[in-house]
């Protein structure tokens, strides 16, 4: 019977406390929007702040209250936007996925240094001291400030000492864009794989002295782009990604090879038996000798030389040309 005393005591105290808590939870009930934790579940929860709120919970609250759009989460992308929209019962317009690119490729091999920097290994620190060790005042310093700012581990410093973005991992949150003291990182639509990897606005002759891959403002890329998607601004081409343009020709024409193409192997043009040998394709092909053939006979594409720009596709009156092989076709092929 001794055992009954502690049983009763512990049991009654437990029951009393449980009852108290039960009453309290009814009396002190606070209505919390049940959608907030649900939204939080579908968010990436990286707390990157790209949405403009102080973390994912802040964004979830704002969305539930209708203050933020469901597609506000950039890293989450279209998938996340749709999931939130489903929860809220609204339709979401997905934002075009973006990725960050570094507008510089002049690493140790290409760009000359004017001093040896031994200070704190940080781009901001190096910029404060005489604006970095490179002669080029816009080149990537390669000290990894952007790498440290990336919440998704998508940026790394490559063997050449230049920051490089992994397109697979990049979510387009834009943290690196803000972190770069040189302001040479920007966001481009993910479907576009070509960007200008130079930010130097010096005159051509000057650039040539210290960087072998620097833009010399020769404007060849502008001339190679009849759609007008490239314009010169203060000695540097500006690419307008909103225009229907794939920039393959521009990248090919650049004499200093300032453009970076993230697609390693592009699809090649192929001319089928419908070809009547009009020769129009040769006139628009930017590569000399990529398309050959006698007038009136079926033309042939040299697969080694073809850069896959797609210029010939739509000029062909018999629709005999198609793009073959790996690469991105629908949006990349120019709809001229």
């Amino acid at each position: 019977m001794e055992i009954l005393i502690p049983l009763i005591i512990v049991g009654s105290i437990g029951a009393f406390l449980g009852l108290g808590l039960g009453i309290a939870s009814k009396k002190l009930f606070v209505h919390v929007d049940p959608r907030i934790p649900m939204i939080l579940d579908v968010l990436p929860n990286a707390n990157c702040g790209a949405c403009g709120y102080a973390g994912c919970s802040g964004f979830a609250k704002a969305v539930a209250e209708g203050k933020a759009a469901p597609n506000g989460c950039i890293p989450g992308g279209a998938k996340c936007a749709h999931a939130i929209a489903d929860l809220l019962g609204v339709t979401a317009s997905a934002e075009e996925p973006q990725m960050a690119v570094v507008h510089c490729k002049g690493g140790r091999k290409e760009a000359a240094e004017r001093a040896i920097y031994n200070g704190i290994q940080d781009c901001n620190a190096a910029t404060i001291i005489g604006n970095g060790s490179k002669i080029c005042q816009n080149g990537c310093l390669g000290l990894g400030t952007c790498v440290r700012s990336c919440p998704f581990d998508a940026i790394f410093i490559n063997d050449n000492g230049i920051a490089e973005v992994d397109p697979e991992k990049c979510t387009g949150c834009g943290k690196c864009v803000k972190s770069c003291p040189r302001k040479i990182i920007s966001l481009i639509p993910k479907v576009h794989k070509i960007f200008l990897a130079c930010s130097n606005r010096d005159r051509g002759a000057k650039v040539k002295k210290y960087c072998s891959v620097g833009c010399t403002a020769c404007t060849l890329c502008v001339k190679a782009t009849p759609s007008g998607a490239i314009t010169m601004d203060n000695n540097l081409p500006v690419l307008d990604y909103s225009k229907e343009e794939n920039f393959i020709t521009a990248a090919y024409k650049c004499p200093s090879k300032c453009y970076t193409d993230l697609v390693k192997k592009r699809s090649k043009a192929n001319i089928d038996t419908n070809c009547d040998g009009c020769g129009l394709c040769i006139t628009v092909c930017p590569v000399p000798g990529a398309i050959t053939g006698e007038k009136g006979k079926r033309h042939v594409v040299d697969k080694e030389k073809c850069i896959g720009c797609g210029n010939c596709l739509h000029i062909c009156p018999t629709h005999a040309i198609t793009l073959w092989g790996t690469g991105l076709q629908p949006k990349q092929a120019r709809m001229a």
Binding site: I13, G14, L17, L21, A24, S25, L28
Partner: peptide
């Protein structure tokens, strides 16, 4: 037991 219940109670009261 008592402390856990108390903290729960305090939490509820604070939230309210």
């Amino acid at each position: 037991l008592v402390i856990a219940a108390l903290v729960q109670l305090v939490e509820m009261a604070l939230q309210k």
